[in-house]
Design a protein around this nucleic acid. Structure first.
Lengths: 228, 228
DNA sequence: CAGCGCAGAATTTGATCATATTTTGAGCGC
DNA sequence: GCGCTCAAAATATGATCAAATTCTGCGCTG
């Protein structure tokens, strides 16, 4: 019944190791994480099949995952959109980030190698350059990469997964913060974190990371409060 | 967690229809949560389409959500199964439950009404009966219902969602605990929690809940340690 | 001769797509 | 303004393709 439309799709571009739904998920995830989608923006399945060149089923699965992640919301009728954070949401996220990242920093400090610390330092150097130039996407990528790389060193996958997921919730708002205040005023306790890691001082690393989180989320909370 | 379900504008002609993928998700969720699936058990799409009488796409979407929840794991090749908790996983879950549920209890204590406390007490009474009779499914349902109902009173959806999700990770193991030790030895600090709630004592409620979590998870950790 | 291992077939299962069905929201006439 | 019709978007099904595991039979070795 189907007219055989030759599906010379992506088989030629090498070994397809990742399923399409995984690819779509990663793409959408990055778009949300790095502010390519604004809070409140509507997301349609058919729009994504068109813009990402994927089929319906993979897009559908990716959206379900992202809803479960809290990166998208299902709006009762069958609409899906990027959530707008409320101040209350932000407050809870702050609590979670502080308690979870504190523990991640503590664990990471106890096991991280010098080579990995150097890698973190390099990420931070790139990040600094992005900040000084006012490169917002560069800042967003670098900042997330710094934290995420640190999480990975904690050898605590359950904690790390939740911490990573939280970024999806405030990512779109973080972009708004940058648009409002620029990159200059953004906090950067990363130097303190690196120093603590080099000393192997778990408590110092934990408290530096908590401070970094506090200062960053404070800006988010400020923008959200202003919006109401 | 309860997203506002369509509260029936046009319910005259029949029941509110939940999408099939939502129904499948809820069914699977309960099966995992209440120990109908054993840790390590394989989960196949086609098996579920048969056993639940649903189509492929809804099952697929439900599975993606549950993987995102941590209730199922994607095993590299394309297989999906119920995860086996490691002792390290359990340790992280304990930390998370203690910090998150502490905060939920604190918030709930400040805003819960007497009627809701009565409802909790009633759930706890049913739970006690299940324990004394050795009714394992009854215990599992009641225990989760008690905690989940408490979460809902905290007015903190982000925290509550994560707390609810954590149950999916240790649910299957909790069932194993019951099979091992029976229901008699299970902890029940619920009376302390209720007392604290009636007094409106947030700190007491928080610490009672933390104790309940500690004692329950201790048993899970014991079984996991034994398995290795 | 029995047991072991391996290549390839058969089967099971997952991934994707095209299509049919249903629902929602909006436009239009009354 | 109210109800009806229509288009667009989401839901859901079954078919088809691809991958992985299991099964099987053959040859080889001890």
């Amino acid at each position: 019944m189907a007219m055989v439309k030759n599906a010379a799709v992506r088989t030629m571009s090498g070994p397809v190791q990742m399923p399409a739904h995984e690819v779509v998920y990663q793409q959408l995830r990055e778009q949300i994480l790095f502010g390519e989608m604004a809070p409140g923006q509507a997301v349609t399945i058919q729009g994504l099949t068109a813009s990402l060149g994927a089929g319906m089923t993979p897009v559908r699965e990716a959206i379900r995952r992202l809803i479960s992640d809290g990166a998208l919301v299902f709006q009762g009728n069958r609409r899906v959109s990027v959530p707008k954070l409320s101040s209350e949401d932000a407050e809870q996220i702050i609590y979670l980030r502080k308690t979870i990242e504190k523990e991640l920093a503590r664990r990471a400090a106890l096991r991280i190698s010098d080579a990995e610390i150097d890698r973190l330092a390099e990420i931070d150097a790139v990040l600094d350059r992005a900040i000084s130039v006012g490169d917002v996407p560069g800042y967003l990528h670098g900042n997330y990469q710094f934290h995420s790389t640190l999480y990975a060193q904690a050898d605590a996958p359950v904690l790390a997964e939740i911490a990573n997921r939280l970024w999806l919730r405030f990512g779109p708002s973080l972009r708004v913060v940058c648009g409002r205040f620029g990159t200059q005023s953004l906090p950067d306790r990363h130097k303190d974190i690196l120093t603590a890691l080099r000393k192997g001082d778990a408590d110092a690393a934990a408290s530096a990371l908590v401070q970094d989180v506090e200062q960053g989320m404070e800006q988010v909370a400020a923008v959200l409060a202003e919006e109401n």
